[in-house]
Design a protein around this nucleic acid. Structure first.
Lengths: 228, 228
DNA sequence: ACCTGAACACCGTTCAAGT
DNA sequence: ACCTGAACACCGTTCAAGT
């Protein structure tokens, strides 16, 4: 309080503009995303929020993709890496992955960016560590475990990216409608298999499919040796 | 030629501007993408190419996402649905999927859009039909086949989206460098598993990993009943 | 009825010039 | 040395007004 004495009045009207730091920028980006969604986290809007010009952000962040990656890693801090309760390594593996998907589900567009620019932040490394530990506990050999890691994370991330877009967007519903229409309308001689599988193609909840996918992968991983 | 007689000279200076049609727009979009990449296939640039204003395109295409979906379906016409040569259904399944990945590899950004807005065009339906036929041939029950379809296509599409971005972009190399640096630097007590798996995490060619992924999935699919 | 000029409301990124 | 105003080169989409 007393330190304000030598700050000019004009500067005290609003809370002092905090000095820019990478951490401050990322924190503001997270806040902005929670408030308005990732698509609003642009360099210009974020700069506005921080009471500066967009050029200033480039001192601390290489580009928009790097900014989004930093936001993602921040969120990954919420993943449950050591789920409580009983269960063998498979159950715990699925629970960690499901927690990861939950985090991505809550912030749609982030999952998409995770598919494109693979993260490499501290929280992501923690997640990798936890998953590798569970695979090791299950006796999965090192090479298979390393490759399995990518497969499991890919399934989780891609599912989040797909579902996330579907839930929110209005036009995602249009996509779905178009697909169901295409499936239903495929009862011609060109697509007999599509017609036969019609109901099954549209069946199951996202949760059921995600869970089945994880079990398919775990089963396959245990049974399929990597080359070399 | 003689039909040109009653066309004013000013209109004959350049080749007659063809009437806009959805097919014409999509064809021009494909051409533009082959020449300059998907990121250049914007409404404005495409309109310029077609010698009109961007607003005119909205008469035939709902939005940019739909345009890109139409371009993707066009390209999917090149997927090898009935690969020649011997091999059981698994081999042929992997070959169809690999052909699909090859098509996406050739046009990076398209794979990303396929993950987000699930296509529903004619060529996509042909692909689905071919995959379901192979799964049926392998004795996979209807429900499992329907769900497996999504799993297989998701793996193929996501891999293409990841790899595609990595190959081209300059900053994708930066991502990779950051990741390898993170893995190499993880030899601390916080990430012992990452350190242990260091070499394996970075091992294998994209082709080896893709192929292994398909075999993991096929094995898992055959062994994992869907719920209900 | 069909088409589109012009406008609205934005973007990312760079760099010369300031402090 | 550090920071940033202003500019460059773009976007998607809408709608009133034209033919």
């Amino acid at each position: 309080m007393t330190a304000d004495a030598d700050v000019p009045r004009s500067r005290r009207e609003r809370p002092a503009k905090p000095a820019l730091t990478r951490a401050g920028i990322v924190a503001a980006a997270v806040e902005l995303m929670r408030a308005e969604g990732l698509e609003r986290v642009t360099m210009r809007r974020l700069a506005q929020q921080l009471d500066t010009g967009p050029a200033s952000l480039y001192v601390y962040v290489r580009n928009t993709a790097e900014l989004h990656a930093a936001v993602l890693d921040e969120l990954l801090g919420a993943v449950e890496l050591a789920p409580e309760g009983a269960g063998d390594w498979r159950d715990r593996l699925v629970r960690v992955l499901t927690s990861y998907v939950d985090v991505l589900f809550a912030h749609p567009a982030l999952a998409r960016s995770a598919l494109v620019a693979r993260p490499s932040g501290a929280h992501y490394l923690d997640l990798v560590e936890a998953l590798l530990a569970l695979l090791a506990e299950g006796g999965v050999p090192r090479r298979e475990a390393a490759w399995a890691l990518d497969l499991l994370l890919q399934h989780a991330t891609a599912t989040a990216a797909e579902q996330a877009t579907r839930g929110q967007d209005t036009e995602a519903q249009d996509d779905w409608d178009a697909l169901t229409a295409a499936v239903r309308g495929a009862a011609d001689e060109r697509h007999p298999q599509v017609a036969t599988h019609g109901d099954e193609l549209l069946s199951g909840t996202p949760q059921q499919r995600l869970s089945w996918g994880f079990h398919v992968l775990i089963g396959g991983i245990l049974a399929t040796p990597a080359p070399e």
